[in-house]
Design a protein around this nucleic acid. Structure first.
Lengths: 224, 224
DNA sequence: CTGTATACGGAATGTGAATTCCGGTTTCGG
DNA sequence: CCGAAACCGGAATTCACATTCCGTATACAG
């Protein structure tokens, strides 16, 4: 038998059509559950427990389950919300004056979000199913492809990068973020920049590296 | 109460002094358990179950538990063995003619091992306790530091890298390795090289980029 | 060959969650 | 203000594992 975890977790409500005609208290509770879940999963990761979500939302377990038939559904809803934000950022990136920065900012953003959300990291690291359902739903594949192509056309991004690499990079950097062992905290942003340096096209100008020479900063010129 | 998982998982046998005077069958079984566990944890990750390890080793659960009082102990033993190999590679790296390659090879090696061992990845991603106990035990901190300093003195490695970054990088790249979603398999080696490019000191020469990666993972053979 | 310390197997137990159920409440159209 | 339809709460149930227990089998010293 397929365990609950095998079902196709959808985005959100399973109740009426979309989210229609929820009774006032129902909508209120649903919101509370989402807020509580967001908090708990961010802090505790996927190990956060349903009864705790309920308690933390001042609601009974039953209520949680009426809104999200399964823990996976709840998680999927949370993930969807995050990916929506990624997509938003990606759209901004496509508009950005500097194509390279458009892409770089998306990556920085995604990593930062993950740094703040252990649950999201764990999903990205161990639930490809949920993850790329959400990515697809948010339109991230198309957006990533656009960002990559644009940055490559401008000559700033290495030519051998494909859009499929973007989620992998984000995921890998995200996991670095969680390696909270001992003295490691706070050093991940540098590693992100290192990765980004590796992504630049071989010849393209680079902003001065941290400890490197003061350098005659050559701003990346707006490519025609 | 501290659950078993909270104990300090040691390296291996808990029986007599070191691994002395095991009865012939005992030693045989212990080996079988380790082999089976290695296989199962590599394939299934930390979710592999103790009863399955036992079955797969043609042994009763009780026997598994006599040798490893806890699942965590078993995992720690497996991890220790892997880290021993990292340390070995690191020692070779310190001797290497080319300091840069000495470091780069260690990273490539570590990532490749993780690519073949889902369990190891999961430990690195979610059990800093086990992980850095093993790292310390294998002497990896000192070795990493030596590798980093050497590569920096030779001018090939960016100056702003500290040895503590090495495990984080290895861990992050390792997790990329597991993002086995859809069409992603086989593209991680390129991402490793990209990261390595980012690690080079700004001015230092780069070897020509590897043309393309032959799609499928090359298994690193187990040592006898 | 024999006794005994060691090991073994695997059913039974214990625990920690997720998920179900159903009698009691609340909301809201009329 | 009324009653049915929607909701609620949270105790009880289920399930999946890790881990324990103990009678039996085996290795090996003498």
């Amino acid at each position: 038998m397929a365990t609950a975890a095998q079902n196709g977790p959808a985005a959100g409500a399973i109740l009426p059509g979309v989210d229609r005609a929820l009774r006032a208290d129902a909508r209120r509770n649903r919101e509370a559950v989402i807020a509580a879940a967001k908090r708990l999963f961010s802090d505790l990761g996927l190990d956060a427990q349903m009864p705790d979500v309920a308690r933390s939302a001042n609601v009974g377990v039953g209520t949680v389950y009426r809104h999200f038939p399964t823990k996976d559904h709840l998680i999927a809803a949370l993930v969807a919300e995050r990916f929506e934000r990624f997509a938003q950022k990606a759209r901004e990136g496509v508009q950005a004056e500097d194509p390279w920065e458009g892409l770089a900012e998306l990556i920085r953003f995604a990593v930062q979000i993950q740094a703040d959300d252990r649950g999201l990291c764990e999903v990205m690291g161990s639930r490809p199913d949920i993850m790329d359902a959400a990515a697809r739903a948010a339109g991230l594949p198309e957006l990533s492809e656009e960002l990559v192509k644009r940055a490559q056309r401008s000559g700033q991004l290495r030519g051998d990068l494909e859009w499929e690499d973007i989620p992998m990079i984000a995921c890998g950097l995200g996991s670095i973020t969680q390696a909270t062992a001992g003295p490691a905290v706070g050093r991940w942003p540098r590693l992100v920049e290192i990765m980004l340096d590796g992504l630049r096209a071989p010849g393209s100008a680079k902003l001065p590296r941290p400890p490197a020479v003061p350098a005659d900063t050559v701003r990346v010129p707006e490519p025609a």
